[in-house]
Design a protein around this nucleic acid. Structure first.
Lengths: 334, 334
DNA sequence: TCAAAAGTGTTATCCTTACACCCATGT
DNA sequence: ACATGGGTGTAAGGATAACACTTTTGA
């Protein structure tokens, strides 16, 4: 343990020079699919990145800096924004980093209402399940999960100490529900971290450390630059958890929408199919929406009422959200 | 809006030199009261501070740096630790800060099992309700709340724009339950921030900005250095929320304990009285504890079984926690 | 007429809450 | 005996999940 210091001083030169990166996970739902805004650098090998940039003296607040960088890089103006987590391990270093400065990365979850599909900006909206194929259970258990199971199990069994082995098996059982067979859609980050530790994802093979598998698995989705995929996993986990007790879904909806559109948005985020009649009752009985009086035609069937978010709901209920659980027998895919 | 930059580079000299402070909220429950570890500097005027220190190159991870600082400053070894939030607004600057460097503060919630009561270290364990007297509802509605209500209402009514006024009133209604009369113990941070904005707490008067009230209210508890009280509020809010779906309380319990001790710990954290028979059933039916076989004597009544935390519970339940709600008719204070 | 989507009704089940009550020990 | 804390039974009420079924449009 280092020697006890008298009293810290902010001018203390033992403190490190640090670069702070602000990184945004910008989420929208369009066409019933969850999208995340990425920057795809030109070139074959280039990896997808999240919009991000360093904190500079012009930025009065962290969130302001984030908004500025996203607008500069993609033209997208942000709506709702929420800080996720600060990543700062010393070995976490982008390949381009010079010198011995530490890079601290502050991740944000931000939501925008359906953007133009044909955004002419350098940003590209991508289905977030391209990065996490095992997270989409809307059409039943995803096929790629079968491919993950075996290497994960072997990774757990290959631990040196027996206590380690038990700990790994426990984490697997909890995160993927391998033992109990029950899938918890919120555990996105835990699942990604296990896949990383077991060497299944490409990111784990970049730093040159030793990994359990020699090469990443093909079925583990697209990689991203740096630890952006970890930040994306954090964002999805937070959003999936939050829709249950806070009315954040409505940040993604147009001013007026049908109950089916709302349901499909929740389904897109949670990666689950829901039971239609019960979903509608849940929404209405919570007082989360009110009639606009209008109806839509051309939805393919009977015209649907258009509703809007009812802001007063947050005053009336202590946890105004959509406590979703998967329908036992899933509605057919559209 | 600033001119579009070509592509950020980590070596970009527009990025700011930043000092990163690691700040710990160290929580324990002893004698049925929630305690937080503070450093009380000598002198009359000195404010309580949380253990904290700058991130330095020796620290491999943020959490490691935090643990080192807490041990150095207080001798306390940390158990459970969880990152809370990163505070980084530019106007947030300790009075001692030199130069134009920004200070970024990363707050952590950490839990330790009952420490020695007579800690000879420079750290002092203090009841956290000294800093938030309105948060303790264990003996019914706290008296100080009556004193807060009026100035808060006048602050809301004094907003310039009518939309601002409505927004403020809505926040008050939600956070303090003034309208609905329903108290939600989790909204600790929202309540502190409202008290700050309305100029009720001493911290709001430090930077010399204009405040609604000319002087802080006496009934708003002890102030802390910097924005440490805000960080403490964040920690309490997180902990109160988390005990409901994660078995974190057990990080605060000795290896064996009685159900009443567990209940009193939860009550101390949540600031509420609970219904005894239902609490016990909740704990046992969730499978959160198992018998040790031993019993305690000298509890003042019939000897109680000693139980221990049952780790397997986290595998069996998707949200293994203590979803507490206030008892309608409170048990008498001990 | 049929497919597709919008809706309504109803029931079984579980969980929570509150109330009433008995048990075992120390003073 | 009684105060104090330990502990059980149970019934009312609400929320949930599943089922079956009707309605209204467009092709």
């Amino acid at each position: 343990m280092e020697a006890r210091k008298k009293r810290r001083s902010t001018a203390d030169r033992s403190s490190e020079s640090v670069t702070v990166d602000l990184t945004a996970v910008v989420v929208a739902v369009t066409g019933g699919e969850p999208r995340v805004l990425t920057l795809s650098s030109a070139g074959e090998e280039a990896l997808d990145r999240l919009p991000s940039g360093p904190l500079t003296p012009e930025h009065r607040t962290l969130e302001q800096g984030l908004r500025a960088w996203v607008e500069t890089q993609t033209g997208q103006v942000l709506g709702y924004a929420e800080q996720l987590y600060t990543f700062g391990d010393r070995d976490r270093r982008l390949p381009t980093a010079k010198g011995s400065d530490r890079i601290l990365s502050i991740g944000y979850l931000t939501l925008v209402r359906g953007p133009r599909k044909t955004d002419r900006a350098p940003g590209v909206w991508q289905d977030w399940y391209r990065f996490f194929p095992w997270e989409d259970w809307r059409d039943g258990r995803p096929a790629c999960l079968a491919a993950l199971r075996d290497p994960l199990m072997r990774w757990a069994a290959g631990a040196n100490a027996p206590s380690d082995r038990r700990a790994r098996e426990e984490r697997l059982a909890l995160s993927f529900g391998f033992a109990s067979g029950s899938w918890n859609e919120d555990r996105v980050l835990e699942r990604y971290e296990l896949a990383y530790e077991a060497g299944l994802v490409a990111e784990a093979h970049r730093e040159g450390g030793s990994t359990f598998l020699d090469a990443p698995l093909a079925q583990t989705g697209r990689a991203m630059a740096g630890d952006h995929r970890r930040i994306l996993a954090t964002a999805i986990a937070r959003l999936r958890g939050k829709i249950k007790y806070r009315p954040v879904v409505f940040e993604l909806m147009p001013p007026a929408f049908t109950l089916l559109q709302l349901q499909q948005t929740v389904e897109a985020l949670a990666g689950l199919r829901l039971h239609k009649p019960n979903f509608r009752r849940l929404v209405e009985q919570q007082g989360l929406v009110e009639e606009t009086g209008a109806v839509t035609l051309g939805t393919g069937g009977r015209p649907a009422r258009l509703v809007r978010f009812r802001r007063e709901a947050v005053l009336e209920r202590s946890a105004p959200g959509l406590r979703v659980r998967a329908a036992r027998r899933a509605r057919r895919a559209p």
